[in-house]
């Protein structure tokens, strides 16, 4: 009975009842690879987990963005202070990080929206759209870096 409960997770080739009334389940032996050094995630899985990570990063940066917006709009002096502060190499790097998370999350999100209207929601096209997401984000992250410096 216990083995019957996990039938859905096995590759069943056939089930039949013998003359004696025993139920025989023939299952396929699946190759197992649990070596963490050789397991590679499929590209769509990488795109998906990066979408989550970039989303969490963007959430964490909301207070910083609001603080910057607040300073930039309060007075000309504060605007200049902020401008100087953000011109330092370290802050530029942080802003590039923010823009990278934004750009990546943007394109991966567009991919989701396209999948909702059934563009790229199959194995092959999904893999391709995942690759396109990575390439497009990389290009725009590079452009954002050039624009910042």
């Amino acid at each position: 009975m216990r083995s019957l409960l996990c039938l859905p997770c096995l590759d069943i080739i056939s089930i039949f009842e013998t003359v004696k009334g025993n139920i025989v389940v023939v299952i396929k032996q699946r190759p197992k690879n649990l070596n963490l050094l050789t397991i590679r995630f499929p590209v769509p899985a990488i795109v998906s987990i990066l979408h989550r990570i970039s989303g969490v990063i963007l959430y964490l940066l909301i207070p910083l963005i609001l603080w910057a917006l607040s300073l930039s709009l309060s007075s000309p002096d504060d605007f200049d202070t902020l401008h100087q502060f953000l011109s330092s190499p370290l802050m530029k790097l942080l802003m590039w990080g923010f823009l990278s998370a934004f750009i990546y999350h943007f394109f991966a999100g567009i991919r989701h929206l396209l999948m909702d209207i059934h563009i790229g929601d199959e194995l092959k096209s999904g893999r391709l759209s995942a690759q396109i997401t990575i390439v497009l984000s990389a290009v725009f992250i590079l452009l954002a870096g050039i624009w910042l410096w």
Binding site: S72, L73, F79, F102, F106, I110, H112
Partner: peptide, 27 residues
């Protein structure tokens, strides 16, 4: 997501096209 896409694209094109952004323009 769609609302944010429209707003972001608008603000980003404004920032990229406005070369020397200063307090007066931004405000």
């Amino acid at each position: 997501a769609i609302v944010m896409t429209v707003y972001s694209l608008g603000l980003i094109s404004y920032l990229v096209m406005t070369q020397d952004i200063d307090y007066t323009r931004w405000h």
